[in-house]
Amino acid sequence: MEPIVYVALGAALAAGIAGAASSFGVGIAGAAAAGAVAEDEKNFRNALVLQGLPMTQSIYGLITLFLIALVSGILGGGFKFAEPTTGNLIKAAILLGAGLTVGLTGLSAIPQGIIASAGIGAVSKNPKTFTQAIIFAAMAETMAIFGLVGALILIITGVGF
């Protein structure tokens, strides 16, 4: 395949996988939120905050998409690695790797949604557990942050602006 395909795949997968995972995560937590609110509408505020947590992975995906598009020249100029040389292919592969890192670590949005869902259940039963539920769900976020940091390092050191 041509370098442009790998670069485009990297950008698309970063935003695509992370976005899809976020939607699953928010969906799972959203179903739990609906269940909690169906029984008592006072649960709405707590449920909403917990439901929103798995959304952040899609933001990381979007940041990576812009970065890949920027360093490869897709944004703001011509594509820099159009020639199918080994050097260009390696740079394209690095950008694909960076995109995949963010996309795959963005899958943490699904377990985060599951944790948030269980948290919504716990908070509905005992509202005092709200802070703990947030912390438990936020733990899954760390993997996505590691992924974003890793991708930034790959992009900056491997390809550069």
């Binding site: 799972i28 937590a29 179903a31 739990a32 939120a33 609906a34 269940g35 909690a36 169906a38 029984e39 008592d40 649960n43 449920a47 599951i114 869902s117 269980a118 919504i120 259940g121 716990a122 509905s124 039963k125």
Partner: peptide
């Protein structure tokens, strides 16, 4: 997800 959160609220 939905049933268990609802049951917890119950």
């Amino acid at each position: 997800s939905y049933p268990n959160a609802r049951i917890r609220a119950m």
